[in-house]
Design a protein around this nucleic acid. Structure first.
Length: 473
RNA sequence: CGGGGAUUGGCGCAAUUGGCUAGCGUGCACGGUUUGGGACCGUGAGGUUGCAGGUUCGAAUCCUGUAUCCCCGACCA
């Protein structure tokens, strides 16, 4: 670990981010282009996200399963828009066991096609619906420009794939997944986001509707943070997948798919981190509390171990007894690692049955009696969690602008950036022109965005809603 | 994929016009003194200069190819 960072967060966000990810040991570059290694500290974050979400997924009756990483090329071609959307970023296996394959195998960029082929085999009757399945896996998308966590050639995610008897039930599932994502971002990661529906040109290849949660990064760019797709009957019809309904007629199942990836870890780092390093919300922090006994303070060491035994039963707690590091060095180390609460104990404190507690988000210190320790920590963890969410919510709101003039729109996108709410006539032409001229595109039509008469910011035609625009990652 | 920059002990960098045994900081190991916001002294280990060719008496330095990373675009979720 070298001293401080080369660049501060405000000076150069990209440099700061890359530096921090590597130095804090969350991840490292792999010897393969565009790929990364998620190191134990980073993987612990992913495991936290998994266990949080998996509980809700199972409660909903969705079961985990696993499908192959290889997809026969012909499967992908069955849904026209789907293959068109993914073709440019596929990795394809052409040789197996030294022999040219008769049919090329695509390394999954997403698993709709291979899963639905199997669903087709497993269902004959309306009684076999719904099919509720999810898988935690890796996918590969050959991105031209990659970025640690936020866009890598290979990434980890969960993909839920369900099929229903009618559109109402289907849409209910789509909304449920979007809610799950919102909850995960808000409650677990302390990140505020805007949910809504994607425009026609921005939706998932093969979906009839795509719902998204968009979060705002410190540089004013939006990050598409998770998506939930209503696939309608597009895939079931393309795959000729039907079951018999109650009347014995053909019923093409209504389908949905939804995913959240390791990209969320990138958002976590960017949103909360500061010039001293990572800042993790207590709910997701792999270590919530670190105890640092001041080296060579004998009473402090004893007390520290007593407290550690007590705290580790209720919290993810760690004690730092590494020899040869000064107290100051340890303080800086744990700040960089983003541990929410640090307990410093020297003989001075031990003598009066107290400890010093430092919260990572504000770096405030307080001296606390040991008898009040548990109570104080409970409250502190809650406070840090909500403070981080509030801070990001405020940042997002402070950088969301209602804009009615295209000049102002352009000005914002060329300076501070951020979220812009503007009227749009919903024509693909205007959307494309706006993107070309400002680099900003529609992110979504926010949920519950009120109907409001207005005119398209580009062409002046009638518009009924303000859409959310932003430049994106 | 287009434009620009980079690649030298683990990490960050230096090495004049092509010229001596490729240096420095940090980290690492060992010993000692330290330890309340990134301690200090001493000793030591660690390099076929990204890779493959070429030019030359001589290449980290010049040429060709190639790989990877970063930045800006196009693409994309």
């Amino acid at each position: 670990m070298s001293k401080k960072f080369i660049k501060t967060k405000s000076e150069d966000l990209s440099q700061w981010y890359n530096d921090l990810v590597v130095k804090s040991e969350l991840a490292d570059y792999a010897p393969v282009k565009g790929c990364m290694i998620i190191r134990p500290y980073g993987y612990a974050i992913w495991e936290g996200i998994q266990s949080y979400m998996d509980k809700f997924i199972k409660e909903k009756g969705v079961q985990n399963a696993y499908f192959p990483i290889f997809i026969p090329e012909s499967f992908l071609k069955k849904e026209k828009e789907h293959v068109k959307g993914f073709a440019p970023e596929l990795a394809v296996v052409t040789i197996g066991g030294g022999q040219e394959l008769t049919e090329k195998l695509v390394i999954r960029p997403t698993s709709e096609t291979i899963m639905y082929e199997m669903y087709k085999k497993w269902t004959q009757s309306w009684r076999d619906l719904p099919v509720l399945m999810n898988q935690w896996c890796n996918v590969v998308r050959w991105e031209k420009r990659t970025y640690l966590f936020l866009r890598t050639s290979e990434f980890l995610w969960q993909e839920g794939h369900c099929a229903h008897i009618d559109d109402q039930e289907n849409q209910e599932m789509v909304s449920w997944a979007l809610d799950l994502y919102k909850k995960t971002y808000n409650d677990l990661l302390a990140i505020y986001g805007i949910t809504g529906v994607k425009s026609e040109s921005e939706k998932f290849a093969g979906a009839s509707k795509t719902y998204t949660i968009e979060t705002l990064m410190p540089n004013g760019k939006a990050l598409q943070s998770a998506t939930s797709h209503n696939l309608g009957q597009k895939f079931s019809k393309s795959f000729e997948w039907s079951v018999q309904d109650k009347n014995g007629d053909k019923l093409y199942p209504y389908q949905n798919s939804w995913g959240l990836s390791t990209r969320s870890i990138g958002a976590l780092i960017m949103v909360h981190g500061d010039d001293n390093g990572l800042v993790f919300p207590p709910q997701i922090a792999p270590t919530q509390i670190v105890i640092v006994p001041i080296p060579n303070h004998s009473k402090a060491v004893k007390l520290s171990n007593t407290l550690f035994d007590n705290l580790k039963t209720n919290y993810r707690c760690q004690i730092d007894e590494v020899e040869g590091e000064s107290a100051g060095f340890k303080f800086n180390k744990w700040e960089m690692k983003g541990v929410p609460v640090r307990i410093e104990i020297g003989d001075k404190e031990a003598e009066i049955d107290s400890v010093v507690i430092v919260r990572r988000d504000t770096l405030e210190k307080q001296t606390v009696k040991i008898t009040d320790l548990n109570k104080t920590i409970d409250q502190l963890l809650i406070d840090i969690q909500s403070n981080l969410l509030e801070k990001h919510k405020k940042f997002t709101q402070d950088n969301t602008f209602s804009v009615d003039s295209y000049d102002e729109f352009k000005k914002i996108m060329s300076t501070t950036r951020g979220f812009v709410l503007s009227h749009w006539c919903e024509s693909a032409e205007c959307e494309a022109k706006i993107k070309e001229e400002t680099k900003a595109a529609t992110r979504c039509l926010p949920t519950n965005q009120k109907e409001e008469d207005g005119v398209c910011i580009y062409c002046g035609k009638k518009s009924t809603h303000r859409w959310l625009f932003a430049q994106s990652y």
